[in-house]
């Protein structure tokens, strides 16, 4: 955009065009739901309901998860956000009394279809848990564990994969000299990044993070959040968190769950500055209606 120099009319005949600075967007703005195209959608949930025995945990959830974005699920304890997250890699199958209805499509594939191998699904949908849960093995073995499950692989290739995963989890520089030491000797923050490295070593499409920083100190939390930010260029990330500020910091989209319902789902900007639902507003601002 240019404007003409006012003096130019009288002083000289040439129009001197000067560059007028346009304000830059300081915060990355994710496209609003109405701007989503079909190819942006990685996971499509439709009419998902889940009950533990007679107790309903999720009611008619429908949402779309955008590829290579961070989607946060927030809500008070017991609202079903972790349950919803665990639907995406069918972790709820481990509980006997669970009944699920509705559809979850991962890149167009219904994950509850009888032809789907749960182990295969979980290799495509990695998960990181609330408490760091490294195996009581060496750092190297922890990262190699998931890779080895997929079949025999030459040592050099495995080495490369472990290094790649650790680098992507921003842990390589810290552990490169002690790959054979026990993972249990690491700090909590390092353990959590190791678990992330373990999850991305098998190159999933989706990463599910279940309160990944709730057991960590602020510095480690910041590192994890920075890591999430970097990882979203390659992975579709879903994060469940108690910490609203964390959701505000790391996510592009936020869904607010309350009593098993998806009350509101929009860009994080909207949810945190101007939510439409009163329940969301109350939760976000620290009120209880």
């Amino acid at each position: 955009m240019t404007i003409e120099n006012r003096d130019g009319d009288s002083m000289n005949t040439t129009n001197v065009a000067i560059e007028v600075p346009v304000p830059q967007s300081a915060v990355e703005v994710a496209p609003a739901p109405h701007e989503w195209r079909d190819e942006d959608i990685c996971i499509e949930v439709s009419d998902l309901s889940l009950a533990y025995g007679e107790t309903a945990a999720l009611t008619n959830i429908s949402m779309q998860v955008v590829r290579q974005r961070v989607t946060a699920l927030i809500g008070p304890s017991g609202c079903g956000k972790s349950t919803l997250l665990r639907c995406f890699n069918r972790m709820n199958d481990l509980i006997d009394s669970v009944r699920i209805s509705g559809r979850i499509e991962l890149n167009g594939m219904e994950i509850h279809a009888p032809t789907v191998d749960v182990a295969q699904l979980r290799r495509r949908v990695g998960m990181v848990f609330q408490r760091p849960n490294p195996f009581p093995k060496s750092i190297y073995e922890n990262v190699a564990y998931g890779v080895r499950l997929q079949g025999r692989i030459p040592k050099s290739e495995l080495d490369d994969r472990v290094e790649w995963a650790l680098k992507n989890a921003a842990l390589w520089e810290e552990v490169r000299d002690r790959l054979n030491e026990s993972a249990l000797g690491m700090s909590g923050g390092q353990q959590q990044r190791l678990v992330i490295a373990r999850a991305i070593a098998i190159q999933p499409d989706v990463l599910l993070l279940d309160e990944p920083a709730s057991a960590l100190d602020p510095i480690s939390t910041s590192k994890i959040e920075e890591l999430i930010h970097q990882l979203k260029t390659d992975y579709t990330i879903l994060i469940v968190t108690h910490n609203m500020q964390q959701a505000a910091r790391v996510s592009d989209y936020t869904g607010f769950l309350y009593l098993g319902n998806l009350v509101e789902y929009d860009t994080t900007n909207i949810i945190f500055t101007n939510p439409t639902q009163k329940q969301t507003e109350d939760y976000i601002t620290g009120r209880y209606g």
Binding site: Q245, F272, P275, E281, T285
Partner: peptide, 9 residues
């Protein structure tokens, strides 16, 4: 307090 939404506004 890191206020959000109406409080922040």
């Amino acid at each position: 307090r890191q206020p959000a939404a109406s409080d922040l506004r």
